[in-house]
Design a protein around this nucleic acid. Structure first.
Length: 111
DNA sequence: GCGTTGACGAGGA
DNA sequence: GTCCTCGCCAACG
C-alpha cells in the first residue's frame, strides 16, 4: 500500500539528495531502488524532471562511464558541464575526471 | 492499440 | 580492452 511510490518520484528524491561536488550514475540509483535493470527509466525520469516545479540537480547524474550523456537536454549543451565545474567537479571532454573520487553512492549514504 | 525510441547497464564473444 | 545483444518500461507518433 505504501509502496505506491512511483519509480520516477523515487528517482527525483534520490537525485535531490546528491551533495554538491558529487555525482552518481543512473544505474546506481536504479539499483538502490531495486530496479538495476531499469536504469533506462532513471534517465527517462530525468527527462521529465524539468517539467516539475522542483529543481532536480540532474547535472549530478551521469552514466556509468562518468560521461555527461544528458548535457544536451539542458538549456545549453555546456550548462551541465559548467554547473559541475562550479561545484568542484573537473570535466574533460564531456567526461568526469576522477570519477570514482566524485562518485556518490546512495546505497552507502542513504542506507 | 501498436511500434519505435531512449539522460543505461550488464553480459557474452 | 572493444563491439554487439538483450532487458527494462514509460512516453510519443
Amino acid at each position: 500500500m505504501e509502496n505506491k511510490f512511483h519509480f520516477f518520484d523515487q528517482v527525483y528524491q534520490v537525485v535531490k539528495l546528491i551533495p554538491e561536488g558529487k555525482v552518481t550514475s543512473y544505474g546506481a540509483i536504479a539499483k538502490f531502488l531495486g530496479a538495476s535493470k531499469s536504469s533506462r527509466m532513471v534517465g527517462y525520469a530525468m527527462n521529465g524532471s524539468h517539467t516539475l516545479n522542483e529543481t532536480i540537480p540532474a547535472h549530478r547524474v551521469v552514466n556509468r562511464n562518468g560521461l555527461l550523456t544528458g548535457k544536451m537536454h539542458f538549456s545549453s549543451p555546456v550548462t551541465m558541464q559548467e554547473m559541475l565545474e562550479n561545484e568542484g567537479v573537473v570535466i574533460k571532454d564531456d567526461q568526469v575526471q576522477s570519477f570514482p573520487d566524485h562518485f556518490w553512492d546512495p546505497s552507502e549514504n542513504l542506507l
